[in-house]
Design a protein around this nucleic acid. Structure first.
Length: 294
DNA sequence: CTCCAGGAGATAT
DNA sequence: ATATCTCCTGGA
């Protein structure tokens, strides 16, 4: 095939999206998603569901393209990036008016989104996340996709799906360096393969019901369940309490003596229905050291 | 060499 | 309920 015609021409995302270069970069690479690799400081390659995908930042616009052979509609892209009006309503509902820490985070990462990722792949990635850094999670996730998924582009492989993973022996996953997480993936795969519609079904339940269902899976505790619900299930009230956020709440909100369960309660009350969105801003601000700057 | 990372599960209290 | 230990791997 002619190399020039592999990708469709660049398309420009509708204006008014509100992203900045900083917030777009953090949205793609900040740890909610492990699908993106940096080509240049303003150009990224990854996948969107089961198509290879590239986007770049060009003079305050976002441009994107995909291979000619892998169809994807603008509506799917707009949904993935949460471009509808519910985003600014969600941000407006956060308590930034009375919370200078949140206000500073929102201001620095203005436009940052929770991506709407497929729940099956989201569950997979966060089963791998325990005691791993972002690059390590990406690395072992890639290894599994490369071994059992479809090739979408050089270095880009699709998530194989749980039915496929259900056929893979735990030992084979261990050889891909998953460590003790191999058991989580193998057992969860067999659970879901027995009931393929299970993940879609819990997306239609309430947050509490869906979380209780997810907690039945091996390798899914409170934190991973909330990540799956927030990033893969569009449950904006989910508040993943990882070590970064816990330390942040202790330091910025003076909850040093509070227990984890009490901190979660505080977050629910204080941040409200879009607590998960607030969490993402706080997490990024803490991770990149924004809150200690003037 | 030791230590611990965006945790979960098992065990003991 | 809460505390402690272990589990793979890799990087500091």
């Amino acid at each position: 095939m002619d190399k020039q015609s592999f990708w469709v021409p660049w398309q420009t995302l509708a204006e008014g999206h509100g992203f900045s270069l900083i917030s777009l970069k953090e949205t793609l690479l900040g740890g909610q998603c492990f699908d993106w690799k940096t080509l240049t400081e303003t150009h990224w390659r990854g996948k969107l569901v089961s198509t290879a995908f590239e986007c770049r930042w060009e003079e305050n616009t976002i441009q994107w393209r995909h291979p000619r052979a892998q169809i994807i509609s603008p509506q799917v892209v707009e949904n993935y990036f949460w471009l509808d009006d519910t985003y600014k309503d969600a941000v407006d509902e956060l308590p930034w008016r009375s919370d200078p820490v949140l206000q500073k985070s929102l201001n620095y990462f203005s436009g940052m989104r929770i991506l709407r990722q497929p729940i099956d792949e989201t569950l997979f990635n966060f089963l791998l996340s325990s005691a791993k850094s972002i690059p390590q999670i990406q690395s072992i996730g890639d290894a599994v996709c490369k071994e059992y998924g479809k090739k979408l582009f050089d270095g880009v492989y699709s998530f194989p799906g749980w039915e496929k993973l259900a056929e893979v022996p735990e030992a084979d996953l261990r050889s891909l360096k998953l460590g003790y997480r191999a058991k989580y993936v193998a057992k969860t795969a067999r659970f879901i393969a027995n009931e393929p519609a299970w993940l879609d079904y819990i997306k239609a339940e309430s947050y509490e019901e869906a979380k209780n269902e997810l907690l039945r899976l091996p390798g899914v505790g409170e934190k991973v369940a909330d990540c799956v619900l927030l990033f893969g299930g569009n449950f904006m009230e989910a508040f993943p309490m990882d070590t970064w956020i816990e330390k942040s709440l202790e330091k910025r909100y003076f909850l040093k003596e509070w227990k984890t369960s009490q901190k979660i309660h505080f977050a629910r009350i204080h941040f409200g229905n879009f607590a998960g969105l607030a969490q993402q801003f706080l997490f990024s601000a803490e991770r990149l050291g924004i809150l200690d700057k003037e």
